[in-house]
Amino acid sequence: MTRRVRQEMARSSADPTRQVSLTVNGEAVTREVSTRLLLSDFLRHELGLTGTHVGCEHGVCGCCTVTLDGAAMRSCLAFAVQVEGADIRTIEGVAGAGDVLHPVQQAFHECHALQCGFCTPGFIMSIVTYFEENKDPDLSDDGIRAALSGNLCRCTGYQNIVKAVRRAHELMKA
């Protein structure tokens, strides 16, 4: 195959940039970023936190769920520059000290609540937040399913995720 002469090429894109400072999983971060860089891409490609997945980039699948100041949000629907000063938590910040799995992570494993695992970080972030926000969560089937209704999974049929939510609740009480 004929190799091409390498074109003279810019080293960085011509996008206007802006500085953004925030906290991610407890660490202070400051970066100069393109003003149109999505928060999901910022987390994944600038910070290397690739556990936040992108399944649709239009706010429907929930794969990109992180927490912003404690509330669940879809990182594909925000620009990095919009979260100046925010406190972001991603799936990488969920496990406890000494790398012990968070009860929700542990429950996913015990209940076979994941197959390909692509949707899993998003589900875990949603569920972790759900428990944080609901001290007395509705653990009926309908209640749990309603709580999960912002996340798509194409592999599991959700049944074991429902089970994992109950199991996580048990583990957290213990």
């Binding site: 556990g51 990488e92 969920v94 799995l101 996913f108 695992g117 899993t120 970080p121 875990i124």
Partner: peptide, 10 residues
Amino acid sequence: ADARLVRGEG
């Protein structure tokens, strides 16, 4: 395979 995946380390 779960341990990596639930941590977002896939």
